[in-house]
Design a protein around this nucleic acid. Sequence first.
DNA 1: TCCCCCTACTAAAACCGATTAGTAGAATTT
DNA 2: AAATTCTACTAATCGGTTTTAGTAGGGGGA
Lengths: 339, 339
Amino acid sequence: MWTRKRRSPTIGDVARLAGVSPTTVSFVLNDVAGSGISEATQERVRASARRLRYRPNATARLLRTDRSHAIGFVTGEIASTPFAGDVVEGAQEAAWEAGKILMIVNTGKNQRIEEAAVGMMLERRVEGIIHASMYHRAVEPPADSREVPTVLLNCYSEDGLWASVVPDEVSGGHRATEVLLGKGHERVGFINLDPILPAANGRLRGYKQALGARELPFDDSLVTNGDGTASSGYRLAAELTRMPNPPTALFCGTDQTAMGAYEALKERGLRIPEDVAVVGFDNQELIAAHLRPALSTVALPHHEMGRWAVNHLIDQAERDNPTPVQHVIDCPYIERESV
Amino acid sequence: MWTRKRRSPTIGDVARLAGVSPTTVSFVLNDVAGSGISEATQERVRASARRLRYRPNATARLLRTDRSHAIGFVTGEIASTPFAGDVVEGAQEAAWEAGKILMIVNTGKNQRIEEAAVGMMLERRVEGIIHASMYHRAVEPPADSREVPTVLLNCYSEDGLWASVVPDEVSGGHRATEVLLGKGHERVGFINLDPILPAANGRLRGYKQALGARELPFDDSLVTNGDGTASSGYRLAAELTRMPNPPTALFCGTDQTAMGAYEALKERGLRIPEDVAVVGFDNQELIAAHLRPALSTVALPHHEMGRWAVNHLIDQAERDNPTPVQHVIDCPYIERESV
DNA sequence: TCCCCCTACTAAAACCGATTAGTAGAATTT
DNA sequence: AAATTCTACTAATCGGTTTTAGTAGGGGGA
């Protein structure tokens, strides 16, 4: 199945076989500029390395060079949301491109485990740590994390002392609303999330901005707060359609909400998008692409945030005492059939 | 933001402060049995370590002990499916419990990157490698992987020479079918996946077994093959309901298929579960829990497979030349409202 | 009372496998 | 023959772990 580990060959073994010193081997294999090793010797060394299937021991190198080329990635719940994959993938991709590797721990919202995880990563001398949240919120990372460059991903700290990257909820809300207004709708219902959430707060501001830009009045009876689930979408959409002067378009805070809203509209015999246009938020492929009609929605930039976090971390590691930057990433609109 | 890295304190610094030798510090901090360090000295050492905020350098330790406590996790597409999170989480959880850390690389179905990833992990002296696939299939991992214990996760090798863990598709199919038969349905429609897939193949066998166990005839006009999408579910469910003697229950190969089937049934005015009972497969929370009525479905044991893979890897690493075991994990039935 | 041995502590030094500064010998040029 | 290059080597180093060695103090025997 797998061959029992013999002692794996060292640089010394290669040197012996090639009849040179370890120094020479090191120079050749890392092709160090200006180390003047003759072509012939180089070839001999390389051949020996191949013969022995030599693989440099990253640990030994690391000890000497003090560069782990590893980045810690700490997250609460990696599986609880389908976004997690995108974030991890984006981060992983950027890391790979930069020759770094990701060490991932998910702590299951246990503060103790989080601290332990950070500790373990510091022992392994990671070059930086990313703290990722699965929904946009404020957090307070373990203090020890300050020992290395740190980036908060999809979250931020109240005190603004940590670098962070979050979605631009305001422009996302603005965009979703504007799409509907642009189609001639003047009464746009908004099934938002719990207004305590940064996401809900930002999107509402965007919603108002979009109305303002077109000099339309803000009618707060059109705005309701759900909890992001399909059933709250169903309930609130039903309520909105029963209003005396019901909205002709619906902006839903999540795609699941939109899924519930679809049900409510269909039950009332309203067609989408002819009678009521719908825009979602999140772009959960699984839902958005498979609803009938397919749901137009605003996407959260998870992949991009993952990439940005890693790249920024790498930048930071090269600076001396950078000021923490609070980065915001745009939420693109994904056009499908529901508008 | 983060304080510029001073040279971090070494075991020598702690020793100096405590007025002992590095040996003593090492003995105390690792509390080595029978090394006879007086209680007083121990306390002094620990206090010094705390004072200096000493953190052992895992790299140096690793170099000496040759135990990296790291496990490589290689996967094609981590984000393309919502399952990925569960698998990673399960693996991560088991790894953490065993004091191991996961190094994750997703290769984006690029064989070259996969080989490079394995190479990099071997350089870092991982204690084993897990190759995870996001859907059940046959694979052939890079040969180099043999240098360490390896487990295939949600995939297997044709030659059977690698340890692997996959879902028990047969019993899953059996279970789904039996649930419907148990409710008195005798004609159970089956919207399967492409029959070339191990998943489809296994579930069909399970479907037949379940019929056989109740001595019901197998009618192949009740079995159709879709592609797992909602639209194929919609189309095929519509076809099945138009049969002369239509099924009173539907077993769908994926929850998305079921989602499409719901649409088709509702359009025809059929109620779920009164007129037609539906069972899905995959247990995609996002869909299954939010459909109306909520979808009863069979869950793929992603979390469990992740755990098993890590645990088995750790076992393997302790054995000498284990024979590759092909493990299969049960798919539990999740009861909701559609039956 | 003196000497020796044993136990309880602690220290010195080798080692893990690389990198890299400093250096030496051979070949070539002047 | 001396001065430069070329080429490759010796040895120190990174920060721990672990084996071996050593010392001080207490107890027992003569």
